[in-house]
Design a protein around this nucleic acid. Structure first.
Lengths: 190, 190
DNA sequence: GTCTATAAGATGATAGAC
DNA sequence: GTCTATCATCTTATAGAC
């Protein structure tokens, strides 16, 4: 959330959104700054006015994901039961099933790419995962589960695994089927 | 398995192994042919004598993974019980837990990277996944499970999800913990 | 059959004009 | 505060020498 630059024109925001979409579709490494600028309707070399480096732009993309994750979890809080909240979490991946099938989980695939680096940006990507897993852990705890942390990891790992399989085999039903399976599992608790 | 080139010197083999290791450590996109050649102790520009393109080299890496997967599954067949065989599969990821934590699942992270492409090489990576899932399905079937396919996907997805989390959080215990969980689940069947 | 030199193009980044 | 022109480097790939 470094807003050292005025956002009146919204160009910075457009660059982040453009980068987010392109990184999801193509991966971070394959996405060039020229493409990002082009999609955001901004002159090619001008990205550097808003971001000192490509890594800084990627960091802004992750910050945006953190923000979106917070909003999603806030939204889910409106459900009165822990089970309903957890199933709502699973459902949020089903809703983007087509995009996940075509390009993978936006956050999961970014974590996979950054996980191979060991230079600072790598553990920034884990922020989104941590936010969601901590939240899920709290829901399992409210269900009276002793090993709430393990269950949260099993749930989120299950979603991520299903997303990878759906993307690999280009089959949205893999994601949907595992989501249903996880929802039944959640219902069987408490 | 295109062996149109003599292997007497073993240089082709060395290139494939070098590429396999570097792609696991750094990802495909970040790995340059110069690095691959250097690690294999082969002159830089000389890779093209053995592989027409970088993609062809990556395809050879995947072929090698297919071969290794076949050997692993053959090895597992020696266990007399379906449960033992499935637990053996899970265990094979635990054994490389440290490498998975540092660089992700070798095959899973490659599938994640190739899943963003739509040009032929993308569905080649799925071969390894398909091989293992089909095999696991057969084991569940032998256990008398009706939805053997779904169970195989749940198991393999669980492993892949755990691998991604272990890599993302740099915590081998995440992989080990989920592996134990999956093993208990396998024991509870049949 | 093996390797060197180099082309051709792309990419991250910078300096400075407007 | 915004944008253009350009550099320096890297990377895939090829042509041709040994």
């Amino acid at each position: 959330m470094t807003d050292s630059v005025p956002v009146a024109s919204g160009k910075r925001e457009r660059l982040v959104e453009s980068a987010r979409a392109l990184v999801h579709e193509q991966g971070m490494q394959r996405t060039t700054l020229a493409e990002v600028a082009d999609r955001a309707d901004i002159p090619a070399g001008n990205v550097y006015y808003y971001f000192k480096t490509k890594d800084e732009l990627i960091a802004a993309v992750i910050d945006k994901y953190v923000e979106q994750a917070r909003e999603l979890l806030d939204e889910l809080e409106r459900d009165p039961s822990p089970q309903g909240r957890l199933k709502g979490l699973v459902h949020s991946w089903e809703e983007i099933g087509e995009a996940v099938t075509r390009h993978g989980c936006p956050i999961g695939s970014l974590c996979a790419e950054l996980g191979k680096r060991h230079d600072g940006l790598d553990d920034k990507a884990s922020q989104v995962f941590a936010l969601i897993i901590d939240w899920a852990e709290e829901q399992f705890r409210q269900l009276g589960e002793r090993d709430a942390r393990d269950l949260a990891i099993a749930l989120f790992g299950g979603i991520q695994g299903a997303a990878l399989l759906a993307n690999t085999f280009r089959d949205p039903e893999l994601m949907a089927g595992q989501a249903r399976r996880l929802e039944r599992w959640i219902d069987s608790l408490g």
